[in-house]
């Protein structure tokens, strides 16, 4: 399988240095080749398991975090908010 490594990198928000593209491409193709060993299988697959129903949470308020704590790890903050480069969309 030929992998479009640049497309996959873009989707993953990664950029790959030019000198590494070939290496990643080759490695990915080998890994994908290993993954392709899986045989097609019959039978339906649904990702639900009603035998293990999820316990739901009661709608009770719990304390939120203090803003200083919430933002203590943020690389850049201003006016109580996290700062990112200007978003146009």
């Amino acid at each position: 399988m030929q992998i479009d490594i640049q497309h996959i990198a873009k989707l993953s928000r990664l950029s790959i240095e030019n000198e590494k593209v070939e290496k990643f491409q080759k490695e990915m193709e080998n890994i994908v080749a290993m993954c392709e060993k899986l045989p097609p299988m019959d039978g339906d697959y649904t990702a639900v398991d009603p035998s293990k129903p999820m316990r739901l949470r009661r709608d009770d308020v719990r304390p939120s975090l203090k803003r200083e704590q919430l933002l203590q790890n943020a690389p850049q903050t201003q006016a109580g908010c996290v700062v990112v480069p200007k978003v146009v969309e």
């Binding site: 999820m54 739901l56 949470r57 304390p63 939120s64 975090l65 803003r67 109580g80």
Partner: peptide, 30 residues
């Protein structure tokens, strides 16, 4: 369990879960 309220001061109704901090997990409100 953060309050669902409009108009609060910025980033005051938040916790590690709703801000996606590493290691946190969701639990669904019934």
């Amino acid at each position: 369990g953060c309050k669902n309220a409009f108009g609060a001061e910025v980033n005051s109704n938040c916790c590690p879960i709703c801000t996606g901090m590493p290691g946190t997990l969701p639990t669904l409100n019934e």
